[in-house]
Each structure stands twice: as C-alpha cells, then as structure tokens.
Design a protein around this nucleic acid. Sequence first.
DNA 1: CCAACTTTCTCCACTCACAGGACAAAGACA
DNA 2: TGTCTTTGTCCTGTGAGTGGAGAAAGTTGG
Lengths: 396, 396
Amino acid sequence: MRRMTARPANAHQARLLKLLRDGGPNSRAQLGDQVDLSRSKLAVEVDRLLETGLVVADGLAASRGGRRSHNIRLAPALRFLGVDIGATSVDVAVTNAELEILGHLNQPMDVREGPVAVFEQVLSMAAKLRASGLAEGFDGAGIGVPGPVRFPEGVPVAPPIMPGWDGFPVREALSQELGCPVMVDNDVNLMAMGEMHAGVARSVGDFLCVKIGTGIGCGIVAGGEVHRGTTGSAGDIGHIQAVPDGRPCACGNRGCLEAHFSGAALARDATDAAHQGLSAELATRLETNGALSAVDVAAAAAAGDATSLDLIREGGNRTGQVIAGLVSFFNPGLVVIGGGVTGLGHTLLAAIRTQVYRQSLPLATGNLPIVLGELGPTAGVIGAARLISDHLFSPA
Amino acid sequence: MRRMTARPANAHQARLLKLLRDGGPNSRAQLGDQVDLSRSKLAVEVDRLLETGLVVADGLAASRGGRRSHNIRLAPALRFLGVDIGATSVDVAVTNAELEILGHLNQPMDVREGPVAVFEQVLSMAAKLRASGLAEGFDGAGIGVPGPVRFPEGVPVAPPIMPGWDGFPVREALSQELGCPVMVDNDVNLMAMGEMHAGVARSVGDFLCVKIGTGIGCGIVAGGEVHRGTTGSAGDIGHIQAVPDGRPCACGNRGCLEAHFSGAALARDATDAAHQGLSAELATRLETNGALSAVDVAAAAAAGDATSLDLIREGGNRTGQVIAGLVSFFNPGLVVIGGGVTGLGHTLLAAIRTQVYRQSLPLATGNLPIVLGELGPTAGVIGAARLISDHLFSPA
DNA sequence: CCAACTTTCTCCACTCACAGGACAAAGACA
DNA sequence: TGTCTTTGTCCTGTGAGTGGAGAAAGTTGG
C-alpha cells in the first residue's frame, strides 16, 4: 500500500491537521470556531485536504438543532510507529493519526549491544505489529534513545551509556529500513512530549519532566516547546553534584545525583543492605532472584521493609534537593516524575515534595504541583508518535 | 512636542523597524535583501512608514556603481528611556531609536525606601536628562527592578529585597508620569537582553547571564527569547543550596549561594577578616572608609592581598559549582558573568571556569565560552530600551 | 402537518496583498 | 557619448481571503 505522500500545503492546513489530531473528528463548523478563518476559506482548505486524502469525511453527526454536520477526521489508515529505546528494554507501539495506541510491545534488551543488534530487534517488533493487522505500513516513525541527540540530523552524540551509538545515523538508517520519515530525540524529551500531549501536562506551557530509570534525566518544556540545548544535552541532570565529595561516579566525578539515586544505584544499595544483614526482606528476595532490582525494593517497601523505605526516602531527598535548585532556576508550572522507578510511588514523591517545598522560594513553589506521570511506560512511545506527527503535519 | 503615536501596521513593518534599529540606516535595496519581499511590496511598506513618520529618508548614500540610494532611517527624534533599579543605585539613560546611549546618569539609592521615593528620584533624573537637551520627551520607557515581576502587567510580586514594592503598579504609574508606554522586567533579564542586543551574546540563541551584585540572579535566554517562568521568578538562583548546612540565609534556609557569595556576603566576609587581623590591607581600608564593600576587596586583591584573593576564589568556586549544575541542565551556548562584582575580574572568572569545566559533562562544556559581560553598567539600561522598543516595534 | 427558526454548508462577488516585469532615474566607466 | 549597473517606481495579473446571500437539512411549537 502506498503510504501518506501528501503534506499540508500551508499553515492553515497544518493547523487543521493538528486540531483533528488533538481533538478528534470535528465538523467544519467546529473547526471554524477554532481557527479564525472565514467559513468560505475554511471550506476551501478542508476540500483541499480531502483531495489529498489526508482527511476524510465520514458520516453525519447528530443534529444540534439544525442541519446535521459532516464529520471530518484524519485518514483512518494513517499509522505512526513510536519507538522508545531504554537502557535495558525497548518499547514499540503503533498509533493511529490521533496518536491513540493500537498495539504496544515491550521487550528486554541491552542498549550496549550497539545499534545494529538493537535495530534488528526494533524492526522485528515493528514487523510483528504490522503482521498482527494493525498496520499495513507506517507513515512516519519517532524514536527515542537514552542519550544526547543532534536533533536536526537525528544522530546520537557522545552518549555515555551507549558508546557504540556515537554518530550512528539513526534517523537515516531507520528511515531506509521502514521507508518512511523518521525523527529522533532523547527519550526523556519524548516522555515530556507524551505527558504534554495526553498526560498530566496537557495545557501547561512550562514544565519539567524528571525521568528516573537506570539513569536520571529531565525533559524541559518552555513555552510549549522542548528545550534541547546547544548540543542536545539539556536536561542531563544525572551528573549534577548532589553530595559534595560523595560517591565516585562512572563519569569520573564524585557525588553525582545518579551515583546516589537511580535504578542502578538503588539496586546496588539494596544488594549491599541485604549482604550486611540490614533487611531480612531484601535478603530473601536476593536469594530467590539471584539479584536485586528497583522493583524488589519497591515490593519490599510496600511490604513495610524499613530499610527499603529508608533507601527510597534517602534517594527522594537527594533528588528533591537537585530538583529544588532547578525549580528555583526555571520556575516551572508543573513537575512530573516518571520512569521505571515510579513504582516506588508515594514514598518517593513525598520525599521529593518535602525537599522542593522546603528549599525553593515560596513564589516558585506556591502553586507548584509535583506529580507522577499519568502515562507510565506509554509516555515515551506516545511522545515519539507526537514528534513525527508534528513534523509531518507541518508545511513541507 | 507630540511623541511617537504610530505603531507598525503589520508584521512587515515591524520587521523593517527592527532591522533599522539593529542595523542602522539602510537603503530600500539593502532592506530588500534582508526581508524576502518583492521590491514593489517593500516600497509600499516603506512609503507607509514614511507617512507615519516612524522612519525618514535623509540624503543619498554614495554610489556603488549605479544610481545612488536614499538612506532610510528611524525617526531621529525618537527617544527611549532606560531605567535600571538596583538594590543600592539607579541607572537612567536616554537612547535614540537605534538604542545608542545619548546620556546616562547613575545615582546611589536604597530600593527599600519604597516605590514612591525611588520614583521621585528616577523622574528627577529623567527630567535632568531631558533638560540637558537630549530629549524633548520620551516615546517609551523600559524599567528593570531587582525582583520577580508579573510581566504582562508590569507589577513586582513578592520581591524579597524590596518588600514595599509588592504589587505596586510600576508600569501604570510610570506610564502616567512619563506619558508614554512602559514595560517592566526583572533587572537580570534586562541585563541579558542588553548583552544580547549589543554585547557578547549577539547572535547566541541559548545562553545564561549571571549577575552578581548585592544579590545574585541569572537571566535565561532560550531560542532568543527571555524565559521568565510561570510566576516571573525564573533565574532566581541566589537561594539554591550551595553548601549543605551552610550559613543561615535571610530566606530562612541554610547554605544558599547568596549567603556565601554576593556583593553583600563578600563585604561581610572582608570586614570579618579585617577584624580578625587576617589582612592588613583590608584593615587599613576599613579604617579609612568606615566600612568595606566589594570594591575594596577588588582593590585589595589587585594589590596582591592574599586574603582578598582567597575570598574571591572561594566565592567563585561556590558560584561555579551552582553554575555547573545549571549548565548540565540547560546546556547553554554561552555563559555571561556580569553585575557589580565583575570588578573582581579574572580571579573570579578563573574560579568559576574551573568548577564548571570540571563538574559539567564534556558535551555541555566542550565549546562553552564563559566570559564577562561587555557592557558593564550600561547592559541594564540598554536592555530596558530594547524591551520597550521590541514592544513598540510590534504590530499594535 | 405546516410555519418559523437554527444550524451547516456552498456559492459568488469584491477587496487586498503580493509578485514580477517593464521602465525611468541616476550614476560609473570606457 | 554610449553602455552597463544599481536603484527606485509603476502597472498589471494572480491568488488569498472576507462577507453576504441563499440553499440544504434539521428542530420546535402551534
């Protein structure tokens, strides 16, 4: 099947496509209320979009006291692929043009195996989704990688946890394989975009999205736009000093936040505690599983294990201290906490909140919600689909 | 004299006015090279601007091998007032439409005396400038205050060091008194705008501008736009924790950056050192002047006083640590250091650089200049003039 | 069941923004 | 003096966009 070839011809059409993406099917009259165009001009642009096949008219809506309206919606065959590459697993999902997830796969993986191996896995997952009948092909794909990205080219640069990927032309390679346009971004930025599109950050202009997983990072949204920084490394808060002369970190410094709290650090601390006999709960889990992960700590804490609760609280305090500084600096309207460690839930959140509210200025924290992400593991793939749709729904 | 009443009627005219402001007089042909409009359309818009009096045609330029061109320039009678209110002094300046400073006054003042007293002083300074023949009146004024501002309304909110100003309608009051449009912003943001317009940050899209004066703050520019945050308190880095369990701060916390390094903290430290007999140099200065300020420390350091150099180095290290975190987070393309303490010069800069380059990730610091501001005390007033001109040179 | 009112959508005429070419003005240069 | 270059003006054609008239397709009340 031939995929989406057309692009909006002008800013009006782009605007209309995004309205239909974010608001679902609409009548011409409803669209007219949102775009500040005359009815006649609007009709012309809608007709042109209908001609290109980007949108379709299907059926009549119920009457609201007068002539019934035609439903205008984005082409129902449009499919986007969202890929979220983490340090230890991949998420791949198919969405329709409204960015609703039609199918979602998650598989363990080690990003250090390099781009070739990971690509193979991603492509086979995409093929599986396609084979299940959810898509005949993809009109575009977004992909997130756990490291800095030179955004315009879609190439990772000097990624600490995935050295083999440095300079690998992710965008071009994936575009070749899939035969559709591709956009690449940092995984944390995509999580922020996901929460902005369909999660807790809807209609918030300035917010921070802290993702605590194997590492720790922060998506920055200013004025509704993701801030990526000069070299694409904005939001890399894992190596901000949280503890003066603290633990040695892989980066060569001491006391980095990531060395004191992250999925990896938490697992290490829990293992140490188990070995030192500080927690019977953790010790039995260690014996059962052979190794401990953040999930074990979460479970132990839920079961009331004091040591685990302490570890979480301690980590939350460290993280909260760093976030407090960022809140003073950036003055966001919302802070979202997400990533694999959100299973730690309320204990973690409470610790972070305490530190932020205590250390930042009242004016900055006065009306500042600090909440868990709403989308969980789907935030990344939704953000990825959003990224490519933003691109495709802009004038060529 | 009647002042500027017209505003650009559309985006084209706004664009042209800003080109003339930033690039000085230009011929129609030169303007055409920069705006991507047909010659005919350009001529129409220029003619309309000439009719309104916003621009004038004065004289012919030298021939470049063909017919001589007419010089188009902004109305030479246009005058902007730039006001920069600090904690302990005020700067007031008059600029022409190209934002060149025609006259500049600086007077000591205490912002805690409240808005009424300060306004009186500002107005008398403005009157003095006007009386000297530099301006017959003002077409617009920008004003910076040392605290958070609700930007759209031009009202300070909960400013820590100027409590009497909370909620005072600065914009409206000044507009009434001067009889011209007024825009209000935080002083640090205006310094950043000044350095962006005419200083070291020309043509840099993302940068940080750290102002170290009585307090300490940071202007944030992302994508060429000042980021003010949700409540207007973005960049308030003085109360980020720099030293765990450090000195008590006026804000109620401990270890705030501002408590350990700022103009005020430095003066206090120097006085202590003098009393403890650690520095003969500082002791004599204390005896001579009755009190010590950052300027004394700078002079003593220049004279080779070891204690003063240590104080500066120590403060630079603290500041550098905080900036290192911000650099990791924001990934700017440039860091500008400015404010009253820049007299401390190279010693301070070296300490900051050391910390930032050591603690931030190589990708973020790889090509990151950290430099002193170029405009010194005029940055704020230039930024203020820029602020109001941006406003007036936008479609109404 | 019909008349009056609503809402949605289409059609048409008019205005204005803008491009691009022809051309005039003014100077440089050989 | 003639040719070439640069600058600026004029004019016409095209397409974007507005706003009103009216047709289409409903609901509601008497």
